[in-house]
């Protein structure tokens, strides 16, 4: 077990290192200029801005300085576009918001998707199965930027206690969470159905049935855990993706989460912000994958030895 954890962590570190290095150089190749503005920059202004942010130093020195600051001082640098804000502050302020929204979404998605998948598997090829799968397909196809405004206009407008957008009341989390959860719920339903069908066709299930175990006990005690393996494999990375925020949902519902910074960082050519986000996201992904693997090992004894 310890060996697995350590090797995964090492893998994560290597991946993150490569990711950040690639991004560091890729973002500097973008056309345009981080300091371009409607009001023209004089040559002197441009040079002054570059000096202020250390962009006048040779590339390898900038690269070395970046790692030095991150590893020794935990300083991800100052954002180019959000003047005076440290990237680490921007992340630490916005991540909890994205996390809250993401967790809500995920819980909703699991509550919706997994039961749907189980029902579909149990009534395989009957109308319940088809209905469930059509719903799942709809969830995958209807995108958030259609769903979001539909919810805003159908629920938030008429209901006085629900705001159209913003993040100032506890109830503000409801609509965006529902909007976000559909996609994940749909995938979970399909994966659960597939996993369940696979397990239900196994010999030991037939033995249990023959021995007189009730349908309910078959599902909950014998089939569920191994059936959820594909879903859990998916949940790891899905978790990381959801909790780092969806740009679209945050934009529609005016949520000050982390998702916005991904796009804003690129739009503004904010080198430090983009790098900080990539670093953070990479580590998060690595941890999420590790959690996913550990959960799998717990759930399916067959995997314990590999």
């Amino acid at each position: 077990m310890l060996r697995i954890i350590l090797s995964r962590l090492l893998q994560t570190l290597v991946v993150v290192f490569l990711l950040v290095t690639f991004t560091f150089f890729a973002i500097r190749m973008m056309p345009g200029n981080p300091f371009a503005d409607v009001k023209a920059l004089t040559e002197e202004n441009k040079a002054a801005m570059e000096r202020l942010y250390g962009l006048d130093k040779p590339l390898h020195i900038q690269y070395a300085n970046y790692w030095k600051n991150v590893l020794l001082e935990g300083d991800f640098g100052d954002s180019f576009s959000m003047k005076g804000r440290k990237v680490s502050t921007l992340i630490s302020e916005s991540f909890p918001i994205s996390l809250k929204l993401g967790l809500f979404s995920l819980i909703l998605a699991m509550s919706l998707g997994i039961p749907l998948g189980i029902i579909a598997a149990l009534f395989h090829n009957k109308w319940q199965d088809y209905t469930a799968m059509i719903i799942a397909m709809a969830g995958i196809c209807i995108v958030t930027f259609v769903l979001g405004p539909i919810f805003q206009l159908s629920f938030a407008k008429p209901l006085s206690w629900l705001n159209v957008a913003g993040w100032s009341r506890p109830s503000d989390v409801i609509l965006p969470a529902i909007t976000l959860c559909f996609g994940v719920a749909a995938y979970l339903a399909r994966l659960t159905r597939g996993g369940m069908l696979d397990v239900l066709s196994q010999d030991y299930i037939r033995s249990a049935k023959a021995k007189g175990v009730s349908q309910l006990n078959i599902i909950t005690k014998h089939a569920l855990r191994p059936a959820l393996v594909p879903a859990v494999t998916f949940l790891g990375p899905a978790f990381a993706a959801i909790i780092t925020g969806s740009f679209v949902v945050e934009s529609i519902f005016l949520i000050p989460g982390m998702g916005q910074y991904f796009v804003l960082g690129i739009q503004n050519q904010d080198y430090t912000l983009v790098l900080g986000l990539v670093l953070f996201y990479g580590i998060l992904m690595g941890i999420a994958n590790l959690m996913s693997d550990l959960a799998l090992i717990f759930m399916d004894p067959k995997l314990r030895n590999s």
Binding site: Q152, L153, K157, N163, V164, A165, G166, I252, F253, L254
Partner: peptide, 18 residues
């Protein structure tokens, strides 16, 4: 001052008395 980048959301928020 609310930094509302999405102008559609802004119009909807106005309609929803925000």
């Amino acid at each position: 001052y609310l930094p509302i980048r999405n102008y559609y959301t802004e119009t909807r928020m106005f309609g929803d008395e925000q």
